[in-house]
Amino acid sequence: MGRPATGRGRRAAADEEACVPGKLKHAGHLIRPAVVLLLGFALFLLVRGAVVPATFGELGHYRAASLDEIRQQAPAFAGQAVCAGCHAGVTAVRASGKHRAVACEACHGPSARHAADPAAVRHAPLDVVALCAGCHEKDSAKPKWFRQVESKEHSGGAPCQSCHQPHKPEF
């Protein structure tokens, strides 16, 4: 050990030692940033796991569970098949008339609650004249094939149902 123990000499000796295979003296410089990076990455994953909703990204860039949530809404209109299920008689009458393609609920309104409990939930009586006029009042913007009348001059104030049966109107 005849070398002078100067600072430069010590550094050179340490460098030599560091270059020995299997011995990494300055490994701390690599390990510390690696640990910091990994901790940061783990933190990112933890925050992401906590913030991003459970089913997000499963089907696309949205929360897949929301599809089922939207489907939970209860229908207000029961559908023609449900009406026909109980009211077979009037359905048959309607089927042979001009109003065969008009669904029951188009005039009678939403009926899912009535269908669920027919005794407790009844339909309010309909204003037949207003209903007829709602579709059949003369209007030059309506298609020409559609039956239209000027109700005042057509009926002279008499209710429509005194001549026409709404479920099977005759002309």
């Binding site: 209109f77 559908g79 669904a103 579709c135």
Partner: peptide, 17 residues
């Protein structure tokens, strides 16, 4: 969506005379 996924049509189509 709650109707068409149950085999019903939309409310507007149901009511269109």
């Amino acid at each position: 969506y709650h109707r068409i996924t149950r085999g019903l049509t939309t409310a507007c189509c149901e009511a269109c005379p």
